[in-house]
Structure formats: C-alpha cells, structure tokens
Computed example of a mutant assay.
Amino acid sequence: MDSRPKTRQVAVLVETDDSWGCSVIRGIADYSQNHGHWNLLLDPQDHDQRSALPDLWNGDGVIARFGNRLQVDQVRKRKVPIVNVDTLFEGLPGVCDVITDDSERAHLAFHHLRDRGFEKFAYFAPPNHRYSVKRGEEFIQLVRRSGLECHEYKPGYRVGRKLGWEEQQRRVSRWLNSLPRPMAIFTVDAQRGRQLAEICYMAGIRVPDQIAILAGDTDDLMCEVCTPPLSSVALAGRRIGYEAAAALDRMMNGERPPTQPIKIPPHGVISRQSTDILAIDDDTVVRALRFIQQRAFQDIVVKDILHEVPVSRRSLEIQFRRYLGRSPAEEIRRVRLDKGRELLARTDMSIGEIASACGFANGTRFGVAFRKRFGKTPLAYRKQLTRS
C-alpha cells in the first residue's frame, strides 16, 4: 500500500502580471514546498483571458484574488475550501480572508506624508473593478480624524465606463488644478500613481515640488520607470501567500474557516523621489531634517545637527515639536529604525549588519530600540514576514 502523502491539487487564481501577485504566489509555493505536498495550478484563464477554473479541474482547494462576481460564483460552485487574498470581495460566507491590513496601510501612508510636513491631502482612485473602496476610506478617515482635510477624486462616472486616454487626462488635470498646493496625494495603487505622475508632467505640475505622490502598493517596474520614481507602500505579499496557504491547508484538513479576516500589515514605505520633499515653511527645520536624512546612519547625535544648523538646542527642540510632534533625537531614531525595518523585510543581511548600516553601535542596541518602537525583536519581525 502506498504510504506517501496525497498530492493535493490547489488552484491559485492570482494574476502574475505585477510584483504583488508574483510575491503572493511565491509565499504559497514556500508553504507548499515545506508542508503541503501540493500540485499548484497557477493563474488558469478562459478563452477571454480571464482568471477562471478549467471545467475539468477536480481539485482540493482554491486561493483566489476575486475580480468579479461571476468568478466568485464559478469557484464557490466547486464546493471546495476557498481562501481569498484581496478586499474586493471580503466577507463571503464560508470563505477565509487573508488580506492586507488596510488600516495599517493608511497609517503608514499618512505618517510618511505627514513626516514631510504636508497638511493638505488627497486620495486618487478612478472607478475600477480591481480594488475595493475600503482602501481609500481608511486613509480619508485617518486624515480627517487628525483634523485635516482630504480631497477625493470623483470624476462623476461609475465603474465599468470606458474613457479614452485624452478624456481621462482632461478630467484628472481639472481635478489637480483645483487642489491647493503643496499637496500630498495617496493613490490606490502603483498603476494609478504612475498615471497621475504622467498627467502631472503633461500638465506642467512639478512632482514632488507642487504635488507629492505615494502609491498604495508596490509594483517594482511601475514605480521604478515612473518619472520621477514613485514612492510606495510595500505590501507583505509573500507573507499573505504563506498565511493563505496555511489557512487553506487547515480547511482542507477539516477545520472551519475563521469568522474574522486574517489581516497582514505592510512592510513599510519605500521612499523614492515622488515624495522627496519637505513641505515645511521653516528653513531651520528643513535643513535639520535634510541633515538627518543624509547622515542618520553615521552615528550622529543632536550636537552634530547644531553644527549644521546654528540655533540653540532649545529652539530646535521647540520647532521640531511644533512641526513633527517629536524631538530631533527621536527623529534620528525613527529614521534609523524605519531603515532597519525595511532592510529586515527586503534583504538577508544579519542583525549585526543591519544595525551597523542603520547607525547603531551594535546589534543589541538596535534590538532594544527596535523592540521598544515596534513591539517585537528584529528576529521575531523577520520571522513574521514569511512564517517559513
């Protein structure tokens, strides 16, 4: 009798045409290789090139980024365990949701822009079937809870209406020209961020001097070929894939799907040129912040800032508290720790190497500061990212 574990057949309805989809699939593969003994059917498509299960597929489970109601109905008819990895169709009965924490995404975006001194905000998300309105709601509500105004792009047409490129440009240009400046705009994703940057260029609007742009997700190609290169929120796609596979495995073994979504926080913000500006009208603070950004990883202290910016320490403290809500020393530590978190997520550097790269004397001091800021050790944070 064959005692080898059964090779399960798992369909993955996640597009491979962007960095996020590829990283989700990588996370699923990580789990499958270590735990699942699965045969993965990747991104099957119908004759119209839409993501769809083949009629003859007879598998054990599905992990999907649902894009429309027809796809949802088709998959649910198969009566197999299903895990959803996007918020567009969140909360379907009997389906497990493993999704990005949109509240944390909004928090990262807002504070990245707020730390650059912006007091005017907008959200850009043309009507589209590819994303949920929830992404924008979280950001808009956070801005308004902070006592600030957030403008929205409302072009006056519904999802599904097709507009020509020139008409889209006219509508977006009108909206951009109606906004006060300097303005920080959070876009729903990298594709829309790149579109906005292109329209700004053609309309003679300077990015980031007049309008700063931050994308709600990271597509490496879209962000890097954008003019200027596009800052973006780095989602934990690989961890979403891993946790989705782990949840599906439990469901295929007979467990019921959880009643609440499993929310995965993003890694952080990847800062590029599209937000490389300080919208602060105090030259002393701007100079000090520029110095911190350039030298934070060289073991500087507040005294070094005072050599660059000839004001009293007390005056500098007051101005930092006024504009940023923290002291110069706290800003140095914040910049270092944010860099450390990015390196933990995006590299295989050791803790000691990361500590040195971020301006800490050793790994122990980095670990203590990291745990105080983020509530976990650097190793625990890195382990959380993939859980593999």
Rank of each mutant, 00 (worst) to 15 (best):
N34H: 08
W20H: 07
V95W: 12
D30I: 00
D17H: 10
P93D: 15
S51P: 10
R69P: 01
I63C: 12
D30F: 09
V80C: 03
N34V: 02
D73M: 14
N58I: 04
E15T: 08
G67D: 13
R50V: 07
K79E: 14
G21Y: 07
L56E: 14
G61Q: 02
H47S: 15
K77M: 12
R65Y: 04
D46Q: 02
L70G: 02
E15L: 09
D30T: 06
R50F: 01
R69T: 11
D73N: 10
L92E: 15
N34E: 09
V14C: 15
D86V: 00
G21H: 05
K77I: 05
L40P: 04
H107R: 15
A52P: 05
W20D: 03
L56I: 12
I63Y: 07
L41H: 07
D97H: 04
V72I: 10
R69I: 03
V72R: 11
V85Y: 09
L13T: 09
D86G: 13
I28Y: 12
Q45A: 15
A64R: 00
V85Q: 09
Q74P: 03
V75R: 06
A52W: 05
G61K: 00
L42Y: 08
S103L: 03
H37Q: 08
V83Q: 02
P54V: 11
S19K: 06
S51N: 02
A106G: 03
T87P: 05
V75Q: 07
D30V: 01
Y31V: 04
D86H: 11
L88P: 00
L92F: 11
S23P: 06
C96W: 01
R50C: 14
L88N: 14
R78Y: 02
G94Y: 11
R65F: 10
D60G: 07
Q45M: 10
G59N: 12
D101F: 07
W38I: 03
R50K: 13
G59W: 02
R65I: 01
E15Q: 14
G91I: 11
